[in-house]
């Protein structure tokens, strides 16, 4: 029982971080705080993938001996989650940049970043 829990506890913590990010995105009124919630959610997903890519008794996926032709696959962790998360981090930066540009533009047009006041200004 305790091993079952210990083997899955990092996943649960990642889910808790996802919940924190979702809470920020749903509940907060400021658009900047919504953006920070989205960043927390993306970081939680990255943590989940990297934690899932771990492998007992293996080292990082850089070959110790090049050209020998005798690399044992059991010695190296799976490189695929690292590759996917490397691209995901850069896409997160792009998303954050575009979102910040939209926020700057919204603040320039409406003078506010509060959700309720933005909705009222749009309805008028």
């Amino acid at each position: 029982m305790i091993e079952e829990i210990a083997a899955r506890f990092p996943y649960w913590m990642c889910a808790a971080l996802i919940a924190v990010g979702l809470f920020g995105m749903i509940q907060k009124r400021s658009l900047v705080k919504k953006l920070i919630g989205m960043n927390i959610l993306q970081s939680a997903i990255i943590l989940f993938f990297v934690a899932g890519g771990l492998r007992e008794g293996a080292t990082l996926p850089i070959l110790l001996e090049q050209g020998a032709g005798n690399a044992d696959a059991a010695d190296y962790v799976n490189p695929l989650p690292h590759v996917l998360m490397l691209t995901a981090i850069v896409v997160n930066v792009a998303i954050t940049g575009v979102a910040l540009a939209f926020l700057v533009r919204i603040h320039r047009e409406f003078g506010s970043l509060d959700e309720e006041s933005l909705i009222e200004q749009v309805r008028q």
Partner: peptide
Amino acid sequence: AVLGTLGILYDYL
């Protein structure tokens, strides 16, 4: 590409 894009993001923001 990444160098130029991050510089553009900082300069414009």
